[in-house]
């Protein structure tokens, strides 16, 4: 027992050693230059994020007529409307479940596929160019292609199902099926990316801990569970963070495939806000809702950033 632990421990990269480059004492001219170099970025970001958010706060306290013209101060009316609105909470729920299902499947599939492929660098050479295609496409185009394939009468998927005796399915017309279709489209587009990220992580792991585990007689599963996954954690977290950020804002696919329907079954937050603002000119409701979304996003992001920071010690 003791021997085994020690061999693994020795082989693991010493975490603290790599980190912490000594902070050089900043020269005052360096500090000035650094300020000058950073200012345009920070200004532009403030202009495009803080300013609109501030404006949204202002709008959220205003009332609007049906043409979208401001008609004065509304107090907390918009917030009350948002908090008591079942479609708002439904959209939050839809977005969270969608994100959990889609990102969870992508990490699970990506990890297992990377395990299978990690030793086969020859096949990967040819596979790589193929795998990069889905993630580079516009989600809008991807959704269009899937809409065509999922079409009830002329879709190829229904055609194939019928040829093996399964009756026509209205994929985008049934609440659960429509939701699952959205998740599948997301999996199609983003699993290759998660796979490539995890694979790159696996291939850059040091070999010694695996050899040590092998000598100590660890089973394959034990090696993966206790040696590989802990070392791979920073990479897994990066994949998780990036995919979660993007899944939470899903809009394009909903716009093309379901328009939030049937009913409200696939109405993500982004789509609901679009509908309120652009179709009903209800900017007050939309702004109040967006600020709630902002708060939720800040909470999720800070959790993710905390995860990233704590797992990146070895980077």
């Amino acid at each position: 027992m003791n021997i085994r632990e020690s061999t693994i421990m020795k082989a693991l990269p010493n975490k603290k050693e790599k980190k912490e480059k000594k902070a050089a004492p900043g020269l005052s001219s360096d500090r000035r230059l650094s300020g000058i170099l950073l200012t345009p970025t920070l200004l532009l970001l403030a202009l495009l994020t803080l300013f609109p958010i501030g404006y949204a706060v202002f709008i959220s306290f205003s009332s609007f007529d049906t043409f979208g013209n401001s008609t004065g101060f509304a107090g907390l009316q918009n917030y009350v409307k948002t908090f008591t609105s079942s479609i708002f909470w439904n959209s939050i729920f839809v977005t969270l479940i969608f994100t959990a299902l889609a990102v969870g499947s992508q990490i699970f599939l990506g990890f297992n596929l990377a395990l299978i492929m990690s030793k086969d660098s020859k096949a990967m050479k040819y596979l790589r160019w193929l795998l990069i295609i889905p993630m580079m496409l516009s989600p809008l185009v991807v959704a269009i292609v899937f809409k065509l394939m999922l079409h009830t009468e002329m879709g190829i998927i229904n055609y194939m199902l019928q040829s093996i005796g399964i009756p026509q399915v209205n994929f985008l017309g049934e609440p659960v099926l429509a939701f699952v279709s959205l998740v599948v489209v997301d999996i199609w587009q983003w699993t290759p990316m998660v796979f490539l990220i995890i694979l790159a992580g696996m291939q850059s792991l040091p070999k010694d801990p695996f050899e040590a585990a092998d000598i100590d007689g660890a089973s394959k599963f034990q090696t993966i569970r206790y040696v590989m996954i802990p070392m791979l954690k920073p990479v897994l977290v990066v994949a998780l963070v990036i995919r979660t950020m993007d899944a939470l804002r899903t809009f394009d696919q909903v716009f093309v495939l379901t328009q939030g329907g049937p009913g409200q079954a696939t109405e993500t937050v982004s789509f609901l806000m679009y509908r309120q603002a652009m179709k009903f000119s209800d900017f007050g409701f939309a702004s109040a809702g967006l600020l709630v979304v902002l708060v939720i996003t800040i909470i999720i992001s800070s959790l993710l950033i905390k995860m990233m920071n704590s797992s990146q010690v070895s980077n």
């Binding site: 970025t41 920070l42 970001l45 495009l48 994020t49 300013f51 609109p52 958010i53 404006y55 949204a56 709008i59 950020m245 939470l248 804002r249 809009f251 937050v269 982004s270 806000m273 679009y274 603002a277 900017f283 939309a286 702004s287 967006l290 600020l291 979304v293 902002l294 996003t297 800040i298 992001s301 993710l304 950033i305």
Partner: peptide
């Protein structure tokens, strides 16, 4: 990380006020 949080912001939060601006 401050710059990264700008990337985490869902565009929909910004786009409605930006439309009005």
């Amino acid at each position: 990380f401050l710059i990264l949080t700008a990337r985490m912001l869902p565009p929909i939060v910004i786009v409605v006020p930006l439309y009005l601006i």
